[in-house]
Amino acid sequence: MIIGLTGSIASGKSTVSNMLKEYGFPIVDADLVARQVVEPGSETLQKIAEVFGKEILTENGELDRKKLGAIIFNNEEKRQLLNSIIHPAIRKEMLRQRDEHLANGEKTVIMDIPLLFESKLQHFVDKILVVSVSEDVQLQRLMERNQLTEEEAKARIQSQLPLSVKEQGADAVINNNGTIDETRKQLEQILNEWDVL
């Protein structure tokens, strides 16, 4: 079974991802893959340098995220161009890792994809697990974690699809408003219901 794990900023998805790791499930982490595909010498990084110029590379051949960010920040066309290079590479690598785990005999693979719904990647997975919190808790956690003002935190939360919408597309929802133990109990219950634990 392929389980898609998703949530929103400060919902506690990483906490649940770490719990799944402790149970021994292999995790395909979209954020990690996004960094891997632009490592020095990668085909994707070469393409980005061809399109945006060599100045987006640091002296040691790494992606200079600040310089690239400055180019695409106020330019929707260039941002879409960058996404058209990076997104297919990320998807391809995520599927490669997923298939490799399955080929190695794993019965269950977790695909940790923060923007699962936004990127319309539901077809990558068999079941969708959403880690959710109330808006108040999400706001508090984000302000504390990232040292943000209430306005800054709200702006970041609003840039994502609301958790209520993600919950509607989920096969199961973990309510992460409580303690770590409460979260773990919910996770175990879901994994048992899905017969993967």
Results as ranks from 00 to 15, higher is better:
D31V: 01
E76K: 14
I85H: 03
D171I: 02
I3A: 05
L116W: 03
W194Y: 09
V51E: 09
Q36V: 15
L191V: 09
N177S: 06
V38I: 15
E93T: 13
G41W: 04
F73G: 10
E135Y: 13
L102F: 04
G53V: 10
V196N: 07
E100M: 13
S164F: 06
S14N: 10
L32D: 09
Q122C: 00
K127G: 00
H101E: 12
D99K: 08
Q97T: 06
E22T: 12
K78M: 10
K21P: 03
A172E: 08
E106T: 10
D171S: 06
G61W: 05
E76R: 12
E100D: 13
E193V: 11
I72V: 15
K78E: 07
R145V: 07
I90Y: 07
E106A: 15
K166T: 06
R91D: 11
E144A: 14
N192T: 15
R65G: 00
E193G: 13
V28M: 03
S164Y: 01
E144T: 07
E43L: 11
L139P: 02
N177A: 09
E150C: 05
R65F: 04
L163G: 00
E39L: 14
Q80V: 05
Q36S: 14
E144D: 13
P162L: 02
Q186P: 03
I72E: 06
Q160Y: 07
G105K: 12
E188I: 12
S11L: 09
L20C: 04
V38Q: 00
A30H: 02
L82E: 02
W194R: 05
T108M: 09
S42P: 00
L197M: 12
V109G: 00
H123C: 05
E100Y: 14
T58M: 06
A10M: 11
K92M: 10
Q36P: 04
V109E: 00
D64I: 10
F124T: 07
N60K: 13
E62S: 13
N176C: 08
G169H: 07
D31N: 06
P162S: 02
M143E: 03
L187C: 01
G178P: 01
N146F: 10
E100A: 14
E150Q: 14
I3Q: 00
Q140W: 12
L148P: 05
S134G: 15
E135D: 14
Q36H: 12
L197V: 14
Y23K: 15
A30L: 04
F117P: 01
Q138C: 11
I72G: 07
D64R: 07
I190S: 07
